[in-house]
Amino acid sequence: MLVQEAPIVWNSLKGLICVYKPAEVSVHKMRKILISKICQEMNSLEGRPPSDYVAIEGDPSQKLTVSVRPNFADHPLVVGPRYQNQDLHVSWSNFLGFYTNGVLLFGIRDGTRQAKFIRENRPTRAYRIKGKLGEVTDNCFKTGKVVMKSTWRHVKQEHMDRFLSAMQASHQKKMFEMCGVDIQSQTAYELAIQGPIRPANSKIPIIYGIKCIEFQPPEFTVEIQCINEYEDYLTHIIHEIGQKLHSTAHCTGIQCIRHSRFTLEHALLMKHWTLTNLLKNMDVCSKILVESGENLPRKSSRLV
């Protein structure tokens, strides 16, 4: 059971939360909904009583009377509810596109610092991307207009696997090449043991792992571990896969299944956004944060 005093709850309401973002709801909208839900519930709790108004009245030439009465200027009906939407700072640590669903991290109040650290530490994210062979759309996603059709029955799973592993290898090789080190050298080894090699620029997407986990033609699902990716990049990967397999493909769904160590099981559905659930989720998230060491800024191996 939650404490009924709003200021106590407000003081404990700082940290990181992990929520589930459905497709076709923007991150901005989610943030707005989260803020208004929290404020609404905070205002329904017992707020701070209005401050006292000290009135000094009477004739100044005679004796003045001092009286204390409730201050109307501090009444919630006049100055507005005690907790207002603009007072609550919320920021996200990973941006998901409009059509992407999955794990989303929000920093609330002091948690915005942690959200920033996670963003700047650039942990890997895992995506599950669904594609469909045989059709190309103008934006490479299912919402677009179909611009081309092709045959797909000749595409087999081994073709797909072969191409995907080649793609993964080329991405990893490229990272070492761009570092300027020979992959057979000691420096390359020392670079590799520091963890995944991250590009210096946070705008360059890099894939660390890609594999096909489901293949039921024409539909297939690909799982990707990557950093610095964005929605268009992921949809275009599916498009590229289709082309390289001598067919065509478009993306039908993108789901972020892991961000750093936060997975779908930690994610809170929008209908469960109540103060009690959010505070519980905050506890869980802070434990994961300490375990993973993401709560501190980290020096990562990167291109020099």
């Binding site: 108004y53 009135a55 201050n71 109307f72 200027a73 501090d74 009444h75 006049v78 100055v79």
Partner: peptide
Amino acid sequence: NIAAYANRSETIQ
């Protein structure tokens, strides 16, 4: 803000 008038105006009270 209307609060500045709240302690003076009877109507608001």
